[in-house]
């Protein structure tokens, strides 16, 4: 049985101009010990998805429909109190601006101890601090830096401390939302290695959200590509990145600059970002797609199975036409 399974989830924001469908009819599941990556560009709904899974939606947002099953619980029906007990213990989140998540006037080890204490009120002080030490060991922060204040840490070390904090209660699922976006490449590389190592060592599941396809490809074995609130393509990373089928995935890969070669660069013609308020019942990507199929602007695309693990939200004729090109 899957650890987490999300079924037909839709999340909307109330706004002056109408309801913004930030996440639209999304389904996926993740097994214990697996890593699932969500990749997409600004406004695709990936951050809203992460917030929904942690019960951290802002006041003007709400789950419109769908279920989120975690073990036997349906997270979509949780109230605030249930979330409070659940968050941090069963799942933990590593945020985008994690540097700011540390309190500047409290020593780092005490902040992590506090998290453990909240969820394990029966633990003794020594047990807690043994656990803290173990966590710091895992993220490779030297023991003599435990009693430092956050400002004494470098950006990379702060991010490690945040990861240690997320791991403190041994959650079964970690949601990482752009955890390395603010970091330099060299530090990013170290943090990604750390995350992979920890994931293997603790057998945690990871949901990794990023705009950077290479980072997602580095960490995750399964990939979901998001566009306009929908998942448009999902599969293993080899399937999605080596033989992408959805036109958007292709555009995304075509604009990725790497150090190796320029041959695969295809400058896409993308102008419009999708209108999340009014567009319904058609393909969100239709305006930017070069397939020029009539169906795209009239009908709702369905899931096309490409292999047992690889699927794309598109029209069969578009996928086939494109393949022949």
């Amino acid at each position: 049985m899957a650890l987490l399974s999300v079924e037909n989830l839709s999340v909307g924001y109330k706004s002056k101009n109408g309801l913004i469908n930030a996440v639209n009819n999304i389904s996926f599941s993740i097994e214990q010990g697996r890593s699932l990556g969500f990749v997409g560009e600004s406004g695709c709904g990936k951050t809203t998805l992460g917030m929904t899974l942690m019960g951290l939606l802002p006041e003007n947002a709400s789950i419109l429909k769908g279920d989120i099953f975690f073990n036997d619980h349906n997270l979509a029906r949780f109230n605030d109190e249930q979330w409070r007990r659940f968050r941090g213990k069963e799942t933990a989140m590593i945020f985008q601006a994690a540097m700011n998540a540390l309190n500047p006037v409290i020593r780092v080890d005490e902040q992590i101890a506090e998290v453990i204490e909240i969820h394990n009120p029966l633990m003794s002080k020594t047990e807690i601090y043994t656990q803290v030490k173990k966590m710091f060991d895992l993220v490779e922060i030297p023991e003599n830096r435990l009693r430092d204040f956050p400002h004494q840490y470098s950006g990379g070390m702060k991010q490690r401390a945040i990861i240690a904090m997320a791991l403190a209660c041994m959650p079964r699922l970690i949601i990482a939302d752009e955890p390395t976006t603010a970091l330099d490449v060299i530090v990013q590389d170290q943090i990604l290695k750390e995350i992979k190592k920890i994931q293997k060592a603790l057998n945690t599941s990871i949901i990794f959200i990023s705009h950077d396809i290479a980072v997602v490809a580095d960490v995750c074995k399964d990939i979901c590509v998001m566009y306009g609130g929908h998942i448009v393509e999902k599969g293993t990373r080899e399937e999605v990145f080596k033989s992408p089928r959805h036109p958007y995935t292709k555009a995304l890969l075509g604009s990725y600059l790497s150090l190796d070669s320029e041959e695969n660069i295809k400058v896409p013609e993308m102008r419009d970002s999708p209108d999340l308020i009014t567009t319904t019942g058609v393909c969100m990507f239709a305006n930017n797609c070069n397939c020029k199929s009539q169906d795209c602007k009239n009908k709702t695309p369905g899931w096309v199975n490409l292999s047992s693990t690889h699927q794309a939200l598109c029209f069969e004729e578009v996928l086939n036409k494109d393949k022949n090109d």
Partner: peptide, 14 residues
Amino acid sequence: KKLILAQPGFNFKN
């Protein structure tokens, strides 16, 4: 060299 090594790439080995 360090900078180049740290670039995330599409190597699917691990």
